[in-house]
Simulated assay, not measured.
Amino acid sequence: MCVVAVPNDRIAEKVIYLLIYHPLLIMFGWSYMRTIFQPTGQVPRKFYLTKQDSDRLEREADEEVQRSILINFAKDLPIQNRTTIGLPRYCEKCKCIKPDRCHHCSVCGYCVLKMDHHCPWVNSCVSFTSYKFFVLFLGYALIYCLYVAATTLKYFIQFWTGGSDKGMGKFHILFLFFVAIMFGISLISLFGYHLYLTFHNRSTLESFRAPVFQTGADKDGFSLGTYSNFMEVFGDNKLKWFLPVFTSKGDGVFFPTKTAPALSYQTMGNTPSFGDGVTYPTRTIDLDSDGLLGDRQRWMEEGDTAGEGPSAVSNSSVQLVSYLED
């Protein structure tokens, strides 16, 4: 009987590969599943107008009365974001005042707390409740791809240099190596971008459209410093930072800011501006409408399903909105 001896170093190599591979696979799959199945954060009931108030708002033709209804309803709510004229952000579809960093998703069909974007990879919104899982998913996916590429590199080189048989099975190595490299390259930029957003305490939507405060639009309004920003997403327990368990700080409704909360809903036409990074940041271009219910804001967030989008918006803006929602 012929017995083929397997070198001990090859056995040790395979054992090491397997011991590293399976934990990576488990963490990758775990974070991906949590991102998919984590319930999306939705607006608490106290932000929804009563049927009486919503019916009155829809029937009312006087814009000043509409303003008064919204301001009176929102005066006790913990909100700092608003439209560019200082009014509470109102969603006509959900009939609610939007909490800070909340946006309406046209795919999900409701307002989502701290909405980052609607992700086709997970078929759900990446939001306050799932953002940590999404970042971990990107990170573990990147490490997984790099590991697969690194462990197949030697066999890939042997295939091209003639150091091994060129049977059909070797094409599996080629396919695996190229797929791992291609996905790894795309994940490097995506994971790096979301690390940047995490360290600056921004969402994808806020990076394109700065949130508006009493002092004006400020893309860094929620930034508390790099470490504090990271802690807000990943929590205080360092042992759980890299585990797909929910440890994010807060309730998804109220977020601390670098400046004191505004005390009233005054218009912003006379707000002083002294440049970025100071108490009164420079007012930048914002896509929210100066109209009462924010027609342009609703169109940008919800999509122009009825063909009623503003004619002045360029094709590049339409492509940008499509990217943010998809």
Rank of each mutant, 00 (worst) to 15 (best):
F73Q: 05
G235S: 06
Q52F: 07
F254D: 08
L243Y: 06
T257H: 09
C2T: 12
G86I: 01
M27A: 12
S273V: 14
D251G: 14
V126L: 12
F234W: 10
K114H: 10
T152N: 15
G277R: 08
N237H: 10
P256A: 14
Y131P: 02
T40E: 10
D165N: 12
H200L: 11
C105W: 06
F191W: 07
E58D: 12
P39N: 04
W299P: 00
W160G: 02
H172A: 13
L195H: 03
V43Y: 08
A12L: 13
F222D: 03
C125A: 14
I173N: 15
V4T: 14
L263D: 08
Y131W: 10
D276A: 10
Y227K: 13
G250K: 06
S54L: 04
C102T: 15
S203H: 03
T259V: 10
A180G: 06
P44E: 08
R101L: 13
T247Q: 13
C111A: 09
K75R: 14
F128Y: 15
K75G: 02
Q214W: 09
K46C: 11
L146T: 09
I157A: 12
S54G: 07
R296T: 04
G291L: 00
D276K: 07
T161H: 05
S189G: 13
R45W: 00
Y90P: 01
G277F: 09
S31E: 06
F159M: 08
C102A: 12
C145I: 01
K93C: 01
I69C: 00
G167M: 01
I85Y: 00
K249N: 07
L153N: 03
P256Y: 09
A12Y: 07
G216I: 01
V6G: 06
N201W: 12
V65D: 00
G309D: 05
R45N: 05
T279R: 10
L195M: 15
H22D: 06
L136W: 08
I285Q: 11
